[in-house]
Amino acid sequence: MDRFEKIFFGISVVMLALFLCALFYASAAMHVHVQSSQEVISVKPGGNLAMAVLTTAPFNNPGVKQIGPHDYEVDIIAQAWTFYPSEIKLPAGANVEFKATSVDVTHGFLIPGTLINMMLIPGQVSITHYRFEHAGTYLLLCHEYCGRGHHTMFAKVEVQ
């Protein structure tokens, strides 16, 4: 290789290494949480996914649950083309754990303006954490194509 090329190669490597460091720093310092839940919904032989979801905790009782002074858990079921529950009320400043799963196809789980962004894959439980600092009405929408009515699939999160 030529001298020019070696220099450019060196610069490129250093640049990418710096980007990587920035990335690691950002994810650690800003507490960006990318889900990696390993919880699954298992279907018994002869059963089906929808039944399995509805009989597995916490999805046998979906909704908002207070689990500590400032801690909430929200369990949500996604089904073409709705979220259950479709209205969620939470206090501002609380630590919220979202658990969601699908009973049919792959759905999305996005709340614009927050760091909540997950895929819901049949048979898998998706989990993320967030704290809403500001009161307001947030949109929870499905951002993965899930059939003809996909664009009608959304819910509202009221933060007071």
């Binding site: 949109l139 499905c142 993965e144 664009h151 959304f154």
Partner: peptide
């Protein structure tokens, strides 16, 4: 701003 892809925005209720 969170505008979803793969979505018929012209028909979406939100």
């Amino acid at each position: 701003a969170g505008m979803p892809r793969r979505t018929a925005i012209a028909l979406a209720p939100y």
